[in-house]
């Protein structure tokens, strides 16, 4: 179950500058564990006290995971996971 994870500029120190990396898992939580195994330090930036960091948004195929089970959101082979910091609009 490989997915492509898009990494924002601010977190690329953990991926050696790579914009996107591959990861495995059938839920977002598993994907994050797999990311942590290969790119140490990422998990602590994404997850605070068992849920997603307030200023981090994660999308599976462009849909916000907070409305699809949060860390338990399902991912499947070939999905794109996009991580972005929360910024203002308006």
């Amino acid at each position: 179950m490989a997915v492509t994870v898009s990494i924002p500029t601010i977190l690329r120190t953990h991926t050696g500058g790579q914009k996107s990396v591959e990861a495995k898992g059938s839920t977002l939580a598993e994907v994050i564990e797999d990311l942590e195994a290969n790119h140490g330090g990422l998990k602590a930036r994404l997850v605070k006290e068992g849920s997603l960091h307030r200023f981090v948004n994660v999308y599976v195929n462009d849909e916000d995971v907070r409305f699809a089970g949060g860390l338990e959101a399902a991912v499947k082979d070939g999905d794109t996971v996009t991580i972005l910091p929360a910024v203002a609009g308006g």
């Binding site: 924002p8 916000d64 910024v87």
Partner: peptide, 29 residues
């Protein structure tokens, strides 16, 4: 990417008005 060029995640911003419980879905386009 320029727009997401924060120095650290704690510079992130969620409007005070935001009430996640009203929404049922959110797409990034």
């Amino acid at each position: 990417e320029l727009v997401y060029g924060l120095r650290n995640l704690d510079e992130g911003f969620v409007p005070e008005l935001y009430d996640e419980t009203v929404l049922t879905g959110r797409y990034s386009v």
